[in-house]
Nucleic acid binder design. Structure first.
Lengths: 332, 332
DNA sequence: TTGTATGCGTTATCAT
DNA sequence: ATGATAACGCATACAA
């Protein structure tokens, strides 16, 4: 591997000059620039990014810390971020936190230690306080899917309450009064917000919320199935079930079908997120759209603007959910 | 940020001693080690990984280059790799190649430049030759989902031909003779292998393969739907359709249903991969199991063994697919 | 076992 | 506009 030394020797200029053309500095004569470029090509020179990072304290890469690497939601999110970053000539360094505090902090430290210029965080185990403290450090970051008021201009999230509200309201409009709810972990902000919205819609329609119709799942498909089984086993009656996300909704439909229920004739289902697979379910799942891609794009553009000074843009921190009407809900 | 200098000063020992305890060297007296550790704690010292990389030429991280960051297959794969790596105290640096040669090489260079100790590659645009040449370089790597004979001991892959064979054989056993086939891009090795297996099973049963029953998709859900529409539009007749992966199978089922077909009564479907969502489809999808997690785990263990000298293990390069019988195929 | 000195490949601060 | 030289923070032969 050729170094900057050899380039400078071959080009007959100083180290500094080589470094300058490398970094697109102004004030370099056309002539020397040409000599340097020629030498670089001849030597097939490739800058050592590690050495650059050490000397400059930056890396042209942004760290992404996400709860899990699989699942439709995270997948979509990672894809958008990486694409947007690469278009800007930056790289993503991706790591998983597994919703475990120690593990998340571990991943965070890794990214910071690797001198990422900025971070995109999608974490739920790390406390608000920790993040607020982190914001005083010197690695800028944005937070996805979570709103911390003290640093809310760095946060990008969905109006989850509105989403939960829209789902329930729609079911009610279709004539449903007995509505079961399969929730995500109630330790997570988005879960509780969605549930809050759900309750709000019920209240507006003068329908009382029954604890017996609530099941707390974990956002994974299987817990949707467990949820419906739980509800059936406890002999609760309901004509529709709202789910905190699409994966649980698909699990719930599967569970209902195991009991020979007809969907949506005997029971309606509504999901949340509008994951890619929802329109391939049968019946196609009515759900709430979560503009993940927009959110991911916006957050990386925030970084492009604030950290790399690359572009201007209007920042939107809160995104709006919308009802996607398909075929899993029936007029009652 | 405290440096090794300050630690050495506070501990009253030399730089080298600090460096030694940092790297768990033998031949360090208990006494000095204690002094150093104490100093580190007091200063809240955190080693600079970049400087370490520069000086040592390694990074304790392995690079992962994958075609896409989303999709059930890649998600499962990334998850397994990251988990296995972290258990071993190593980190994953993940990047996407988007099945585009320039982009893949770009990602590859990034990982190599970042001094990853090893690479895990799931790429399909980069040529065999390029990879063979790369194998002579000094960054060790493994290749997933692809077998290049010259470096086959670094390759981990499925017996795709067997998979395609098993799927078709099963359909034939159920009495199907007119079998449509929705394939992945025939430029990709796995696609052609699966198709080859399919044809082999047909041949064994003396059923001639009809080009008119073949549709070439792109592994995405939508192309499954497009495929079934194409087949219907061209008035081909068939009682079953085999798909190169589960996503296309789900799209195909959706398409068939749009035409009011009953599944599996009027038409049977079989997928490939056994993605997480297949048992939540309706009817539950009969498919071929691809042990992605095992493969991912094996490949990272190969690295743990060969690069980090961490563990012994028996290497398996080729993984075996199995039929997963569910409810989307009917006796004909 | 411990310490000294040098190198790793750049960037950045000065002069010139 | 260009060049010398000192960081950057650590690893590692080599010497002691």
């Amino acid at each position: 591997m050729a170094t900057i030394y050899e380039v400078s020797a071959l080009a007959g200029v100083s180290l500094s000059s080589v470094s300058r053309v490398l970094n697109d500095h102004e004030h370099v004569s056309k002539k020397t620039k040409e000599k340097v470029v020629a030498a670089m090509n001849e030597l097939n020179y490739r800058p050592n990014t590690i050495a650059r990072s050490l000397a400059s304290n930056r890396s042209n890469s942004v760290g992404v810390l996400v709860s899990e690497l699989h699942g439709p939601f995270f997948g979509a999110m990672l894809s958008s971020v990486e694409l947007e970053l690469r278009k800007a000539g930056k790289h993503a360094v991706i790591t998983a936190g597994h919703s475990d505090e120690e593990s998340e902090i571990n991943g965070l430290d890794f990214l910071i230690d690797r001198k990422c210029d900025a971070l995109i965080l999608l974490v739920d185990a790390i406390s608000d306080d920790y993040l607020i403290k982190l914001s005083k450090g010197n690695t800028p970051f944005v937070i996805l899917n979570r709103n911390i008021s003290e640093i809310s201009d760095h946060c990008f999230y969905l109006d989850n309450e509105l989403g939960g509200y829209l789902a329930a309201k729609y079911l009610i409009e279709q004539g449903h009064k007995e509505i079961a709810y399969i929730s995500g972990p109630l330790t997570k902000q988005d879960s509780t917000e969605r549930l809050t919205g759900h309750k709000k819609a019920l209240a507006e329609a003068n329908i009382s919320f029954k604890e017996s119709l609530l099941y707390e799942g974990d956002y994974l498909t299987k817990s949707g199935r467990d949820g419906i089984n739980y509800l059936i086993k406890h002999k609760t009656t309901f004509t529709a079930v709202a789910c905190s996300n699409d994966e649980m909704a698909s699990g719930a439909m599967r569970g209902a079908r195991d009991h020979k229920w007809l969907i949506p004739e005997q029971c309606s289902f509504i999901g949340f997120d509008n994951a890619f697979f929802t329109e391939y379910l049968y019946p196609q799942l009515t759900t709430i759209n979560f503009p993940v891609n927009d959110m991911a794009k916006m957050s990386t553009q925030w970084i492009l603007k604030n950290v790399y000074k690359q572009k201007e843009l209007d920042i939107i921190n809160m995104f709006i959910p919308e009802l996607i009407e398909r075929q899993s809900v029936k007029k009652n």
